[in-house]
C-alpha cells in the first residue's frame, strides 16, 4: 500500500476545504455552544502552531504566549468596545481613542502588532537566555502583564473585568485566520529561514559558525509568536464577550506547552492535531466534571498526558516531521 503523501499544494486545498466545511456546518447548526467551542478550538490551534514555531523551530522555551494575548486583547478591546460605554468602563482612555470604533479584524491586527512590538522590546532582553532561564523569565512576564492589567483599571476595569464586549469574532473570521497562521508558519518552516531556525535549535554554535545569526532568528520567531498570540488574544474576548486580567494565565501557558509537546515540538501538523484533540478532550472532561462535581480532573489529565509523552515519546507524536505531506 502506498503511504498517503500529499503535495503541500494539495494539503493546502484540503485544509481550506476542511475549514470551510467545519465553519459552514457549525454555523448552520445554529447551536451557540458548538459555535463557541469551535471558535475556542480554532484559536487554540493558532496559538499552538505559533508556539511550535517560536519554541519548536528555534529550541527556545518561552511560556510567554498568555502575556502577549493579554496585551493584544486589551489593546483590541479599546477599539471595539461600544463607544457609548467607554466613558464609564474606561475613564482613563484619551478622548481621541474613546471616539474610535474599529471593526474587529482591524482591531485584532492592531492588538497583534502591539503585542509584536512588545515582543520585540522584551525579546531583545530575554531571548539570549538558555532553556529554563527563558521559561522563568517569560513566566515572570505573564505575572507582570497580569499585574499591569489589574492596576491599569482606568482602561481595564481591573479585577472586575470588562463585560459586554461585542461578540464580533465570527467563525468565518477565525477560520480564515487559522488557515493564514498555519500557512505562514508552514512557509517559514519550509524556507531557508525555517531551516536556519531549526539549525539553531539543533546546535546553535555550529549554526553560527557558518554565518547564521542565531540571535536575529530567535528574535524573529519570538516576535512572530508574540504577534500571533496578541492577535488570538484579541479575538477571544470577542467570542466570550468578557475579559479580565486573569483570562490568560499560567494554566493556559501550561496547556499550550502540553499541546506542542504532544504534537512534537516543531511539527505544525502535530500542533494542529494535538490542539484539536486536547480541546475536544478537555471540553468533554469539563462536562464530566460538571455532572460529577469533581472539578480539576481536566487539568490533571492534561498534565498526565504531558508527563506520559515526555517519558514514553519525548519527541511527541511527530517530532519535527509533517506527516502525510511530501516535503523535500
Amino acid at each position: 500500500m502506498k503511504r498517503l503523501a500529499l503535495t503541500p499544494i494539495q494539503a493546502f486545498f484540503l485544509l481550506v476545504a476542511a475549514m470551510g466545511v467545519l465553519v459552514l456546518a457549525v454555523e448552520a447548526s445554529g447551536n451557540g455552544y458548538f459555535q463557541t467551542f469551535t471558535a475556542l478550538m480554532l484559536v487554540n490551534v493558532m496559538l499552538a502552531v505559533s508556539l511550535t514555531m517560536t519554541n519548536g523551530f528555534t529550541g527556545m522555551f518561552s511560556l510567554g504566549h498568555p502575556a502577549f494575548m493579554t496585551m493584544g486583547a486589551y489593546v483590541a478591546v479599546l477599539f471595539t468596545y461600544p463607544v457609548g460605554r467607554k466613558g464609564f468602563a474606561m475613564p482613563a482612555l484619551p478622548e481621541v481613542i474613546a471616539q474610535i470604533h474599529l471593526p474587529l479584524p482591524v482591531a485584532a491586527l492592531v492588538g497583534g502588532l502591539f503585542a509584536a512590538l512588545m515582543g520585540w522590546l522584551i525579546g531583545r532582553l530575554v531571548v539570549h537566555l538558555q532553556t529554563h532561564y527563558l521559561a522563568v523569565a517569560t513566566l515572570g512576564l505573564i505575572i507582570v502583564v497580569q499585574t499591569f492589567a489589574l492596576n491599569l483599571d482606568g482602561f481595564t476595569r481591573g479585577g472586575r473585568g470588562l463585560t459586554g464586549i461585542p461578540r464580533e469574532a465570527t467563525l468565518a473570521l477565525i477560520g480564515v485566520s487559522t488557515v493564514l497562521v498555519i500557512v505562514l508558519c508552514w512557509r517559514i518552516k519550509h524556507a531557508s529561514l525555517g531551516r536556519a531556525m531549526l539549525a539553531v535549535r539543533e546546535n546553535e554554535m555550529a549554526a553560527r559558525c557558518f554565518g547564521i545569526d542565531a540571535f536575529r532568528l530567535k528574535i524573529t520567531a519570538f516576535v512572530l509568536g508574540a504577534g500571533i498570540a496578541g492577535f488570538c488574544g484579541a479575538l477571544l474576548p470577542h467570542v466570550v464577550s468578557v475579559m479580565s486580567p486573569k483570562s490568560f494565565g499560567l494554566i493556559l501557558a501550561f496547556n499550550l506547552i502540553a499541546i506542542i509537546v504532544v504534537g512534537g515540538q516543531g511539527s505544525i501538523l502535530g500542533a494542529v492535531i494535538a490542539a484539536v484533540f486536547i480541546s475536544l478532550g478537555s471540553e468533554s472532561l469539563r462536562m464530566v466534571e460538571e455532572s460529577t462535581g469533581v472539578y480539576g480532573v481536566t487539568q490533571v489529565i492534561v498534565a498526565v498526558a504531558l508527563i506520559s509523552f515526555l517519558l514514553v515519546r519525548p519527541k511527541g507524536l511527530f517530532g519535527l516531521k509533517e506527516p502525510f505531506i511530501r516535503t523535500s
Partner: peptide, 15 residues
C-alpha cells in the same frame, strides 16, 4: 543537525 536530512543540513549551511 541530527533531525534534519543531509541535504537540509547542507542547505542550512548556505542560508
Amino acid at each position: 543537525f541530527d533531525d534534519m536530512t543531509v541535504r537540509q543540513n547542507v542547505m542550512a549551511g548556505a542560508h
